Computed example of a mutant assay.
Amino acid sequence: MESNQKKIRLGIDAKWYFDGPPSGHMVVKNLVDQMVTRHDEFELCLFLCSKHKNLAKSHFPQGIELIFLPNVPNMIANMFVVPYFANAHKLDAVMLQNFLGPWSDKLFKVVYIHDVLFLDYPEYFTKNELKYFNFIRRYAIKANLVITISETEKKRMVQNYVARSAKISVVHHGIDEKFKPLCNCQAAIVQTVKEKYNLPDRYLLFVGRINIRKNLDNLIKALGMLIDSDVKLVVVGERTALNLKLEEMIAAEQLGGRVIFTGHVPEEDLYTVYANATVFCFPSYAEGFGLPPLEAMRCGVPVVVSDRTAMPEVCGDAALYANPDDAEDIARKIRVLLNDHSFYLKKADEGIAQSEKYSWKKSADDILNLISHGYDHSKSYR
């Protein structure tokens, strides 16, 4: 862009920067952190929640315009509140999370849709969630550009008439650079984290939401089939109503003492919990991307994942794939890693190499380039 050309005034939906859904918070924080370093083509304006006003003012650098919104649900804010502020602040373009509304055609509108799994897998969502998420599809047609996180999700969007293929671009997630192999972690910190969460010497690790879609029941059954191993299972994720059923299942399978539920683990501890794991297991039935396996790979921890949806696209040849409906197959793949040290080291190295293909800087740059090119193209037709 020539120096005398007007910079694009771009509003970024950063409401989840300081808190929000765990996966959404992580994505928004990493993307925004990278975007605020780039001022060559944009005047960045961040939409934030008013409750974080003091924190945000002290956190973000000068040159970043902060726009504080009322503390209302994400969908309501994007559909009815953000349009007013976008107009008041004379923005040229906006990028919003998941939900768009009946906006003016004067703005270049980008909607960042993480996934539309609810369209193909309604059985994993409540009736209220399905009603709520359906607004994603209803208004995506209003967007000039739709960004999603995998080719798998792009295909799902096209097949479900969320948007035309030509309007959808894929930008993969990145990986926080703080994830690193155990050999690069401070021994004192490792010991502190092990004691804090009562981590065993050898453990399978799962990180994610505790819900039916994540298929923890078959992972627990697979653990029970590893009768010749002293390995345990550590489950990281906020407690839900499913925990009670899983605990009843653990008792019925006589696995008491072999499964540890940590509850929520803050980011500063999570890096070490990953790095100290023996094998990472992610037998989910459906994922739009599936970042946790890549985070484990970055730590040099081999992974066993399901052979469904986006997992093969994201993990490539570095993962071991299992049928999520077959607990014995999950156990078999775990057993291979536990019993073959040379193969274990090979998959650890392959995982590190695979994970290095993904970075938040690349993700942020790709998004901003798409917006810049799309905005310039749209202006030529006005």
Rank of each mutant, 00 (worst) to 15 (best):
W16L: 02
Y17F: 15
P22Y: 11
S23W: 02
H25N: 14
H25I: 01
M26Y: 12
N30M: 09
L31D: 05
H39W: 01
D40R: 10
F42R: 06
L44K: 04
C49H: 07
K51N: 00
H52G: 00
L55H: 04
A56P: 09
A56S: 11
I64W: 12
I67G: 07
N74R: 10
I76D: 12
F85E: 12
A86K: 11
N87R: 12
A88M: 10
H89V: 03
K90D: 13
K90L: 12
K90Q: 14
D92A: 05
V94D: 00
N98W: 00
G101S: 06
W103P: 11
W103F: 15
S104V: 02
V110D: 04
V116E: 08
P122D: 07
Y124R: 01
K127I: 04
L130H: 01
K131L: 09
N134Y: 04
R137G: 00
R137N: 01
Y139N: 02
I141W: 00
K142I: 04
N144H: 13
L145Q: 14
V146Y: 01
E151F: 09
E153D: 09
K155I: 12
M157D: 07
Q159G: 06
S165G: 05
H172F: 15
I175Y: 03
E177C: 13
K180D: 13
K180L: 15
L182A: 15
V190A: 14
Q191I: 05
E195S: 10
K196A: 08
L205I: 05
F206T: 04
G208K: 08
G208A: 09
R209L: 06
N211P: 00
I212M: 03
D217W: 04
D217I: 08
D217A: 09
D217S: 12
N218D: 04
L219P: 00
G224V: 13
G224Q: 12
K232F: 15
L233E: 12
V235F: 15
V236P: 14
E238R: 14
K245D: 07
G256D: 04
G257I: 03
R258C: 03
I260F: 04
I260G: 03
F261Y: 06
F261T: 02
P266G: 00
Y271G: 02
T272P: 01
T272G: 01
A275D: 02
N276L: 14
A277V: 09
F280W: 06
P283L: 13
R298M: 06
C299F: 06
G300M: 05
G300C: 07
V303T: 10
V304I: 15
M311A: 09
D317E: 15
A322N: 01
P324F: 02
A327D: 07
D329G: 06
D329S: 08
K333M: 13
K333Y: 08
V336F: 13
V336D: 08
L338C: 09
N339Q: 15
H341C: 10
F343H: 09
D349S: 14
E350T: 02
G351T: 05
A353K: 11
S355H: 08
S355P: 10
E356N: 12
Y358P: 11
W360N: 04
K361G: 05
K362Q: 07
S363I: 02
S363W: 06
S363Q: 05
I367V: 12
I367T: 05
L370F: 05
L370V: 01
Y375G: 03
D376T: 06
S378Q: 11
K379S: 09
Y381D: 09
Y381I: 14
Y381C: 10
